[in-house]
Design a protein around this nucleic acid. Structure first.
Lengths: 141, 141
DNA sequence: ATAGATAGTTAGCCTAGCTCATTAGCGGTG
DNA sequence: CACCGCTAATGAGCTAGGCTAACTATCTAT
């Protein structure tokens, strides 16, 4: 592994891409898309956030996040309220509808992966969980 | 973890999606896109394959794979040759140009992740590598 | 001979990322 | 106080890469 870092990276890359693709294919109902769901989760965890904060949290560009928030706003799952102090900023908050979706959708959304993880050995699950922490650190650093 | 399978799955899901997104953002030159590169790698490893075989290998639909192969063909990196035995089938083969790209691009493509993995401890790298095998198994099962 | 299955393809849709450019508001300096 | 440069949000338009539905050609089995 140390002598073949490229191949190790290649293997990790392929696995991450394939799993992510497979996860997206499991669309499990719903009322919101995957990226919208991520934003709603973030908002119900952290309360009101600005567009830039949301974009940075997911490491995507502000215009990309703007579109996602637009859709959520149109569907009534978030509201934009201008910041009273700095009027350039817009605070984005989940509505009751948005919070309700998070509560209702979370386990449905993860059902496929949860089931797959059930079929693993405890050691494999532990490895996966440990790795997910590392992957997230790499991805958001 | 066993008592909170949804949260474990959620963590793994987020990590996979975020890492995959981050990886895609590292586009590193080039002459081919990410999915084209994956196909070329597959072809140079396994020789001639049909469209369906390629689609199944990556667990995507035939039309999706068809588009990727179209682009590769237009750019001269693969050729389609009708199967002499079963004329419904089309064998897809990498050209010299395609193989050359695989050789030249592999390490560039993984440079970002390779570098990140270098910053990990050996134990973390081992965890990541072990997890990638599990993730790939889940994704392609 | 024909009916059904299979392989590839075309057309058209969707999600979700991006850059570039614009508008509005903020803060500091001549 | 006027202006300049920075920041926040947004609009426009592009791209990659998934999908389904529907068509054609071919094969296979009855």
């Amino acid at each position: 592994m140390t002598e073949l870092p490229d191949q190790a990276a290649s293997q990790v890359r392929l696995a991450a891409v394939r799993l992510s693709r497979r996860l997206r294919a499991q669309k499990s109902d719903d009322r919101v898309t995957d990226s919208q769901m991520t934003v709603l989760m973030h908002l119900s965890k952290h309360g009101s956030l600005t567009l830039s904060e949301l974009a940075e949290a997911e490491r995507i560009s502000a215009p990309s996040m703007n579109r996602t928030v637009d859709c959520l706003e149109t569907d009534g799952h978030v509201v934009r309220t201008p910041d009273p102090v700095d009027r350039r900023k817009t605070n984005i908050t989940a509505t009751d509808s948005g919070r309700e979706i998070v509560a209702a959708t979370l386990h449905k959304r993860n059902a496929w992966l949860t089931e797959r993880m059930h079929e693993l050995t405890p050691a494999e699950r532990a490895t996966l969980l440990a790795a997910s922490e590392i992957m997230d650190r790499i991805a958001t650093q």
